[in-house]
C-alpha cells in the first residue's frame, strides 16, 4: 500500500508540474501586459518599469516559471513587496496580496458547496438506486428511472437559473444562496447552501441511481447473495452488507470523477448562484490578466482531479479485498 501511494504520489506531482507549465506558457502567449494593470490608470514609464521589475516580469519566461515553482516550496522575496512565505503562489498582479491568502479565503466556499452537494447526491442517488433495484419492474422503479433521466438531462445553468428565479426571486421560499462559515453558524451554513446543493443533487443523483440500480440488480442475483439468504441473514443484511458491497466499486469510480469535476467546474455553479468561491476567482483572474491567481486556481482544480483519482484507486482496495496487493 505504501509503495502504491508513493508511486501514485510521484506521478501526481509530475502531472501537476506539466499542467502548471502549460498554463504558465499559454498565459504569455496571450497578448496583454499585467504590469500596466498593476501600475494603475495613470502610469508613468518609470513606474511601469518598476512594477515590471517588482513582479519579476522583466526576466526570461523560463526563469519566471522556475521561480514560481520554487516559491511554492521555499517561499520568495519580492523587491518592494516583501517576503512571501512558502507555500508562495506569488503576489496577485491586481491587489498586490499573496495569492495563497486569497485562495485560503475562497476555498471553504467551493469546498462547502462541492462536498455538501456530493454527500447529498451520493446518499440520495445510492438510496433511490437500491429502492429501484429492490422493486425492479414495479412503479417505484419506473418513477426512479424516469425522474433520474430527466435530472440527468438538465444543465446547471438551466435548472439553477430557474430555481433562483422562481424559488428565490418570485416566490421567495428560500433566501439567496450565501456562504456563512461552518465554524461560525452550522445551521446558517447549511441553510445558505441548501439551494445549490439541491440543484446539484438533482443533476448528479441520476448517475448514481442508474449505476446503483443496474449493479445492484446484478449483485442480487449473484450466488454469494443467495448464500447469504440461505444462511438465514435478514433481507436488510443481505442488501446492505452483501449486495451493496459489490455495488460500491463502480460508485466510487464515478464519485471520484464527479467530485473532481465539481471542483473544477465550480466556475458555472458559483456564477449561477453568485457565490464567491474558487470558480469565480478564476474567471476574475482571467479577466484581469492576473497570472499568479490564475495559476493557483488551475493548479487547485488539477490537484483536485489528481488527488481524487488516487483516493478512488486506494478505495478500490478497501472495498474489494481481491484488488489488494499482498
Amino acid at each position: 500500500m505504501l509503495r502504491f501511494l508513493t508511486r501514485r504520489g510521484l506521478s501526481a506531482a509530475f502531472i501537476l508540474l506539466i499542467v502548471s507549465a502549460v498554463t504558465f506558457f499559454l498565459f504569455f502567449a496571450v497578448p496583454g501586459d499585467p504590469a500596466r494593470l498593476a501600475c494603475g490608470k495613470v502610469c508613468p514609464p518609470e513606474t511601469l518599469v518598476q512594477a515590471r521589475h517588482n513582479l519579476g516580469l522583466d526576466q526570461p519566461i523560463f526563469v519566471q516559471f522556475v521561480e514560481w515553482v520554487s516559491g511554492i516550496f521555499v517561499g520568495r522575496e519580492y523587491e518592494g513587496l516583501g517576503h512571501c512565505p512558502a507555500p508562495c503562489l506569488g503576489y496577485s498582479f491586481v491587489n498586490q496580496e499573496p495569492v495563497f491568502g486569497t485562495i485560503v479565503d475562497r476555498l471553504p466556499v467551493t469546498l462547502s458547496l462541492t462536498v455538501g452537494a456530493a454527500v447529498v447526491f451520493l446518499l440520495f442517488g445510492v438510496g433511490t438506486g437500491i429502492i429501484a433495484a429492490l422493486n425492479q419492474g414495479k412503479p417505484l422503479d419506473k418513477i426512479a428511472s424516469v425522474s433520474s433521466l430527466i435530472g440527468a438531462s438538465v444543465q446547471i445553468y438551466f435548472i439553477g437559473t430557474l430555481a433562483m428565479y422562481f424559488l428565490v426571486f418570485q416566490w421567495q421560499v428560500i433566501e439567496r444562496p450565501r456562504y456563512v462559515p461552518l465554524t461560525e453558524d452550522p445551521i446558517g451554513w447549511a441553510y445558505g447552501l441548501l439551494l445549490p446543493w439541491i440543484v446539484l443533487a438533482i443533476i448528479f443523483t441520476a448517475n448514481y441511481t442508474r449505476m446503483t440500480r443496474s449493479t445492484m440488480v446484478e449483485q442480487l442475483s449473484e450466488d454469494y447473495v443467495r448464500t447469504a439468504r440461505a444462511k438465514g441473514m435478514s433481507a436488510r443484511t443481505v442488501v446492505l452488507r452483501f449486495a451493496l458491497r459489490g455495488t460500491l466499486t463502480p460508485i466510487a469510480t464515478i464519485f471520484g470523477i464527479d467530485l473532481a469535476s465539481l471542483i473544477g467546474g465550480a466556475i458555472i455553479t458559483e456564477t449561477t448562484f453568485s457565490l464567491q468561491g474558487i470558480g469565480r476567482l478564476s474567471i476574475q483572474s482571467v479577466n484581469n490578466d492576473d497570472l499568479p491567481m490564475l495559476m493557483a486556481t488551475v493548479l487547485l482544480a488539477a490537484a483536485a482531479i489528481v488527488v481524487f483519482n488516487v483516493i478512488v484507486d486506494a478505495l478500490y482496495a478497501v472495498i474489494d479485498p481481491r484488488v489488494r496487493l499482498s
Binding site: E222, D223, Y224, T227, A228
Partner: peptide, 8 residues
C-alpha cells in the same frame, strides 16, 4: 464455492 462465498 468461488461464487457462492462472498469475496468481500
Amino acid at each position: 464455492p468461488l461464487t457462492a462465498l462472498s469475496p468481500f
